[in-house]
Design a protein around this nucleic acid. Structure first.
Lengths: 212, 212
DNA sequence: CTACAATGTGAGCATTGCTCATGATTTGAC
DNA sequence: GTCAAATCATGAGCAATGCTCACATTGTAG
C-alpha cells in the first residue's frame, strides 16, 4: 500500500491508532443499529463483527465482552445529554422563575429522547440486566443532581435547613422515571404526562421554596 | 379478559393433578431461591429442574420457556401485594386526612418489599428484558391506579375538572420508582427517601385538593 | 391380557458468547 | 537492508445453555 520507510525516520506514530479508532466506531455504530432493530439479546456478537467488517477476535480485543459494547454506547449517549443540560447549571438561567426553569429542563430532556430514539429502544431492554450500564447512568444522574443542587443554592441560598442535594435527587429520579415512561406512550398521553411531571416537580419545589 | 390458563393449564382429572400442582410449586420455589441467590441469567433451567427433582422435560411441560417461570413468580408476588393494598380502596380509610392516607399507603408498600426481598432481587435484574413480566406489572399498576382514583373521588368528588386517573397514575409511577429505588440504598438514606416520597406525593395532591 | 392413550424422561441438538493457537505485521538494533 | 522479537490480527472451534423429541413408563378400557 504505502511506503512508509522513506524519508522521515524518527516518527513514532502508530499507523494503527487511527485505524483502530475507526474500527471501534464502526462496531459501535453497527451495534447501535442492530440493538435498536432486533434488541440487545437477539443480536449476536458475531453478527456485529461481520457487519462492522471486523473479525470477531478483533472485536474482543476492543471490548472485553458483549456488555462492554452497550456500556460504551451508554457513555456516548450520556455525554450528549450532559452537553444539553449543561446550560441549566449556568448562572444565566438561574434568574428565571422556578416554573419556567423546571419547564425548560423537562422539555430539554424530552427533546433529547426524541432526537435519539435509540437510547430508549436499547436501554429499555438492558436496564438492570447489565450492571455496568446501570452504573454509568447512576454516575450521570449523580452529576446532574449535583449540578442542579448548585443551581438551586444560587437561586435561594437562604434556606440553609434544606438539603438541596436530596431535593434534586428526588426530582431527577422521580421526574426522570416519568419522562422515561412517557416515551412509550401515545402522543396525546405522552404530552399529558409531561404536563403532570412539571406540576409534580413544581409543587414539590414550592413546598420547599414558597416564594415566587 | 383474563388468561388464567397460563401456569395451571387444563390437566386431566387424573390422580396426577395434585402431584403435578405439587411439582409446579416446587419448581417455582426452587426457581425463586436460585434467582435470588445467583440471578436470573446465571440460573440454568437444568439446575432448577434438578433441584426441584423434576426432569427437565417435565419442567418444559409446565412452563413454555424460562421466561414463563419468572412470569409466574411475578403473578404470585403481585397477588400478595394487591391483598395488602386492598384496604386502601375501602371507604374506611377515605376519611383519614390526605397526609395520613398517603403516609400509610407508602409505608405499606415499603413494608411489603421488606417482607419479600426476593421481589426486588429478582425484578431488578429482569425489568425490561422480559416483556411478559413488564406486562404483568403494568396490569397490576393499572388496577392500583383505578382503585386509588376511585378512592380519591370518594374523598373529594367536587373537583370534576380533575382527571383523577392521571393523578393517581402519576403518583403510582413516580412514587413507585422512588420506593423501588430506596430499596437498594443504605438504611438511613432509604428512610430519608421515603420521607421525601411522601412529601412529593402530598404536595402534588395538595396542588389539586388544597383543602385540608 | 391386550391395545391404546396419556404422560414422564433425559440424551443430545442448535445456538451463541468467547478463546486461543496460528499467522501476519511492525519495530528497532546492527 | 536484515532479522529476530514483540505486537497485533484472525476465525475455527470450545463450552455452556435453553429447549426438543424419540422413547419409556404408567394408566385405562374392553
Amino acid at each position: 500500500m504505502f511506503d512508509r520507510s522513506s524519508s522521515v525516520s524518527t516518527i513514532r506514530r502508530k499507523p494503527n491508532q487511527a485505524r483502530s479508532q475507526e474500527r471501534v466506531n464502526r462496531i459501535l455504530d453497527v451495534a447501535e443499529a442492530l440493538f435498536v432493530s432486533q434488541g440487545y439479546a437477539a443480536t449476536t456478537t458475531n453478527e456485529i463483527a461481520k457487519q462492522a467488517q471486523v473479525p470477531i477476535g478483533s472485536l474482543y480485543q476492543f471490548f472485553s465482552d458483549k456488555k462492554a459494547i452497550v456500556q460504551a454506547l451508554t457513555v456516548r449517549y450520556n455525554q450528549l445529554l450532559r452537553e444539553r443540560l449543561a446550560l441549566f447549571s449556568t448562572a444565566e438561567l438561574t434568574k428565571l422563575p422556578l416554573s419556567t426553569y423546571v419547564e425548560q429542563l423537562i422539555d430539554t430532556t424530552t427533546q433529547f429522547f426524541n432526537d435519539y430514539p435509540g437510547y430508549y429502544a436499547i436501554f429499555m431492554e438492558v436496564q438492570g440486566s447489565v450492571p455496568e450500564v446501570q452504573e454509568v447512568e447512576d454516575t450521570a444522574d449523580a452529576q446532574l443532581v449535583a449540578d442542579l443542587a448548585r443551581s438551586l443554592v444560587q437561586r435561594d441560598a437562604s434556606k440553609d435547613t434544606v438539603d438541596y442535594e436530596i431535593v434534586t435527587f428526588v426530582l431527577v429520579k422521580a421526574i426522570g422515571s416519568l419522562v422515561w415512561l412517557s416515551l412509550g406512550q401515545e402522543q396525546a398521553f405522552q404530552q399529558r404526562l409531561i404536563v403532570e411531571a412539571k406540576r409534580l416537580a413544581l409543587s414539590y419545589l414550592q413546598s420547599y421554596f414558597p416564594s415566587s
